[in-house]
Design a protein around this nucleic acid. Structure first.
Lengths: 245, 245
DNA sequence: ACTATCCAAATAATCGATTATTTGTCAAGG
DNA sequence: CCTTGACAAATAATCGATTATTTGGATAGT
């Protein structure tokens, strides 16, 4: 038997385009479904940061047994959204200013590096994917009054950033970036209902994308770094407003 | 209740110095113990890369029930040593030339970045830890004839590299570096029984450490990068010898 | 009043058995 | 001869019950 040989950190089935019309959404087992629901619950803030997760209550809330619940939680640990301690159980990872700052710093390092590699190695297919992701994002309205538009926008925004770096040919790096994006999104969903007035985010995305497909390495990387940095600065302000250290 | 607030990716209890004389080695639950044993089994090559992990057999081998077995395996997924697919089970992550090259590249980027941050932010305590880790490593003999010395050396080597970057004040980054080191160690344990003749590894470590505590950023970073690079090159040759693509 | 110790309730971990899914094999049809 | 479908064996996922650990509170001793 020849192993598939995707290597470690091959992209998980999550958020695959799901091209087949069948109802196979890659979330077969209860454990998988739970992982998704819990992830969404944490990123959206439904499960408060830092709070303990009582297995018994969660079991009743989600109407499942312990085994798949632990299974699901275990996956969120890989995502950095949940922490675990022997005999003490699970808790939602805390948020803090230091944590946000680290995430921002690391995104500036990792994501920018991944973009550079993508520009160096990406093929035409990748270019096309970038332009499509950009278009879909910029065509999607973000109306603070309607939460469902926010969620949709977040999804496409995440997709855009991941697509940008998807050409780098480095599964482990992509995995790291995906984690950082997860962690970052929790802050954004919690604190940014609307983008600050002095930014034109659509334009920022366009500049990055256009620089990327034009293979203007330094320009695109610089734009991305600034983009990430600005988001970090914005979020930091919002955290300060709410008195979070 | 005030949350401990270590933030995501706070260092796990693994390989803590275990200062207390008590038999509490932080591996309380069967799941934890299994995770350690499995990790060791994978890194040492006892469990072949790419091979499927049959839950039933593993259950009998380790004489445990399914729940803790899954628990343990789940943790190794976070470590990148095990892959999982719904309804298809677990398998040991494959090794490949591409995978090794990515690990090496990422170590050059991120471990070096972490070292730079450590030099920028580390305190005297950190400096002391570095010198101690260096001393212990260099004083430990590595005799290819006696496997137990190799294991001991690997442990101290790992400890040295982690200590070098432990002052960076960035838990997530440390977590990533720890993973990369894990993945890298599997290659070394599998392919390097002795260091290639043209290297004086002890001296390389000394140069890095001394540059680090002297806060000679560029020098220390450069030495570390070369050190990682050389190891990568060596391993690549050994992989080629064994016909691994 | 303060600390330490012991109990009971709450919670996490584990087990053995059951259910669901996948995989390999073989026969029927093209 | 190849493909397709059905079946059976192998394997993974889940459940409900049991066991072990932690936590909070009451009690006794200083």
């Amino acid at each position: 038997m020849v192993p598939d040989h995707d290597g470690a950190f091959a992209p998980t089935t999550e958020d695959a385009p799901s091209s087949s019309g069948f109802l196979d959404d890659g979330k077969n087992t209860i454990g998988s479904q739970l992982a998704s629901r819990l992830r969404e619950a944490i990123i959206s803030g439904e499960l408060q940061a830092g709070s303990k997760i009582n297995l018994d209550k969660a079991r009743k809330t989600f109407n499942v047994s312990l085994s798949p619940l632990r299974e699901g939680l275990a996956r969120l640990i890989s995502d950095g959204l949940v922490e675990f301690e022997d005999n003490r159980g699970y808790r939602v990872s805390s948020i803090s200013l230091a944590n946000l700052e680290e995430i921002t710093t690391l995104r500036e390092e990792f994501e920018v590096f991944a973009l550079r590699e993508s520009m160096r190695l990406g093929d035409v297919e990748w270019e096309g994917n970038v332009m499509r992701a950009l278009h879909r994002l910029n065509r999607t309205e973000r109306d603070a009054a309607r939460p469902e538009t926010l969620e949709r926008w977040e999804e496409l925004h995440r997709e855009f950033h991941l697509t940008l770096i998807s050409g780098c040919g480095k599964p482990i790096l992509l995995h790291f970036c995906r984690l950082l994006l997860n962690l970052n999104d929790r802050y954004r969903r919690a604190f940014l209902t609307r983008t600050s007035g002095d930014r034109n985010v659509s334009q920022e995305h366009s500049e990055i994308a256009q620089g990327a497909v034009a293979r203007d390495l330094d320009y695109a990387c610089d734009m991305l770094r600034q983009h990430i940095h600005r988001t970090g600065t914005n979020l930091r302000k919002h955290l300060a407003t709410k008195g979070i250290l």
